[in-house]
Design a protein around this nucleic acid. Sequence first.
DNA 1: CCAAAAGTGTTTCTCATACACCCATGT
DNA 2: ACATGGGTGTATGAGAAACACTTTTGG
Lengths: 248, 248
Amino acid sequence: MNPNALSKLGLAVNHISVDCVVLGLSDSTLYVLLIKRGVDEKGNTIYDYKLPGGLIYTDEDLDDAASRVLQELTGVRNLHMMQFKAFGSRDRISERDAQWLQESLDDNVKALVTIGYVALGRIGRKLNLHNAGNEVCWVPVNEALKMDLAFDHKTIITEALKAVRHNADADPAVLYTLLPAKFTALQLRMLYEFIYNKDIDVRNFKKKMMQLAYIEPLNEYEQGVAHRAARYYRFNRVKYKKSRRGTE
Amino acid sequence: MNPNALSKLGLAVNHISVDCVVLGLSDSTLYVLLIKRGVDEKGNTIYDYKLPGGLIYTDEDLDDAASRVLQELTGVRNLHMMQFKAFGSRDRISERDAQWLQESLDDNVKALVTIGYVALGRIGRKLNLHNAGNEVCWVPVNEALKMDLAFDHKTIITEALKAVRHNADADPAVLYTLLPAKFTALQLRMLYEFIYNKDIDVRNFKKKMMQLAYIEPLNEYEQGVAHRAARYYRFNRVKYKKSRRGTE
DNA sequence: CCAAAAGTGTTTCTCATACACCCATGT
DNA sequence: ACATGGGTGTATGAGAAACACTTTTGG
């Protein structure tokens, strides 16, 4: 289907898009991946930010569309995308958003239902930062929620965070995709503290952590730090899966 | 937008539909609301079942569409519908489904993304059982999953049940929409046993139940039963909300 | 030697579980 | 009287939470 053909006939069509909330951890801050967007308003170009997202093709699986869109816009590949919610309120498209859709799609878009996907990644991952003229950047989640975002992308980010929390209960493995392959006990604990938004006792945490067979201590330690060097651990996916046979 | 106009031009469009999984409890069995569907195959009409569902309008909220579709097809109103997942695999439309879409919509539908909604209701509720030529009926969930259902509706039902389980953890209030206003301890316990799919100790359950302020014992008892009469309880929504300040 | 973070055990309490007998009512 | 389901308390164990000092390293 060619949307342009339809719009030239003056017909509005229902569109389905996917929006990707990609989260990354650095030090003690959680970041989200955003794209800078320029909109012409009375001759002036105004910039704001949006989540990476785009229309799905007619014959495309939802999950495939999410991966494709993310890759096209940011160059990020092979990230496990998790569907968490669909958004379709009538008021999710502002006047500015409508204008941007018109400019960038040359189409008469009336309603836009979007399926939200969330992914957790390592922030060190290289991005095609100017892919297709888009400026891609990591923004701390707390700041992003205070910014002027496109559509209802603030809502989408908030819902994505909720989904991650719920999911981490059921399947903690997703959390390790946020950490580097080798991580310290502190990093892991800070991640849990962020996700569950509360302080965790150091000793109790270590105790629980050590009785998880899938967290393996390495014989490697931090280097050049101005205090006692912390040990590194790694996540063993095979042992993790074994430990969860019979769950769910 | 008029989909027929598009299909006459030979264009396929992306459609978005909602499908409603309405669950109801009766005695110790959970039922799901299905609609009988007739499909012509080589001149013979073959019947199978589908979930109540339909296309959303161009300017409609997703949540509104779910309520509307359910009401149009079954006459059920004012049920709290909860969105739980979107389904958009390419293989969710079989040949028979495609034929049925053609017949009932007179449209050239290529792909169909559907948003799944789940609602819990009281099974006693009156239904317009033959609304718009549709036969609407309650089918025990276990049986429904063994039947020949349209599209990927089996998957949708399974996912809906998962969603209800997860949701009941976070917010048990939804469970009380399955029960009559006045219920016995046995009814409540059986509901929990069904949702969590395991036996629950009578005394431990009662103990926990009694320390929930929002479950109020009434001075009413069963009548005319061939054994000691069970006490009735009711769910107090106000106390429930109060007890959950600061959660989430 | 001082600052900064790592590492390490024990006690207490709460909550989940397991379990058996008497009571009220209709037939 | 008997069959049927309603109603009740206690003891045990596992896991969560609270809590403070010593160790290592660089500056």
